[in-house]
Design a protein around this nucleic acid. Sequence first.
DNA 1: CGAAGCCCCTGTTCGC
DNA 2: TGCGAACAGGGGCTTC
Length: 308
Amino acid sequence: MPELPEVEVVRRGLARWVTGARIGPVEVAHPRPVRRHLPGIADFCARLAGTVIQDAVRRGKFLWLPLDSGEALLAHLGMSGQLLLAGDGVADERHLRVRVRLSVPDPGGGPPAISQLRFVDQRMFGGLAVVPLVATPDGLPAGIGGVWEPSAPLLPPPVLHIARDPLDPHLDESALVERLRRRRTGIKRALLDQTLLSGVGNIYADEALWRARLHYARPTEGLSRPAVRRLLAAVREVMGEALAEGGTSFDSLYVNVNGESGYFDRSLAVYGQQGRPCPRCGATVRRDAFMNRSSFTCPRCQPRPRNG
DNA sequence: CGAAGCCCCTGTTCGC
DNA sequence: TGCGAACAGGGGCTTC
């Protein structure tokens, strides 16, 4: 499943390889991934055809390509989505949902010559839409990327309520710490609340809580400022490590755009590790049902709060 | 406004 | 061997 560091690697690959590309005909093989484009499939295709991609920008797990039409192609990969660059000779993937034909003026040596952007998604939680771009409420850059800006920083409306993510240099950490401490809920719920902080999914929440030695049910009420800051530092740390691995595991970003990740299977201390020893203290990692999901903790490093 | 729960989706794995 | 249930989970949406 694509997590924030992988989405960032995809963003970098797209920025590198398709900035300046002109979009040609668009084929929608399955209507579901375009369901959030309310005017329909024909309108989706018509708005894309003939435009030129200006940039690739990301906030949390939302990714968009600003177009010279003033609109943007907005993407969310959901659980199983991939954005792949391909040449015409590459066989269609089994779950190919949308094909965007491209003409890339300067292929720049990416083998083979890129002529398609493909949205491949088995489970179709993710999707694409063509959306307008509106000014960011705070006047600051919309997210990561955004080298190209017409005059003011711009954001797709569906991303307006999404908070900045841990990799965003404009994240106001002090304000976040205070907002989080005013919440009356468990710390993992708060960590997963995209209106507070975006891009943290179940895996990174569990890994960061383990590093900060906090149980997922620990009430936000009563968490000290330093404790919250330690947790945010842990989130940033684990994501930074994953990004470093994703960025160095392969020779070129072109490969990473094609959906590879170097992070999982390694480096995970607790997520998916039930029954195995905690890497820090050796106690047996446990798995609990929480929020209709799984939560993994070390019972010794992360003791359950009395009233949790 | 905040908190919490439901639901969407399909391939894989597991239990009977 | 076959079949249905459980599971994976981000985020939109609804309700209180």
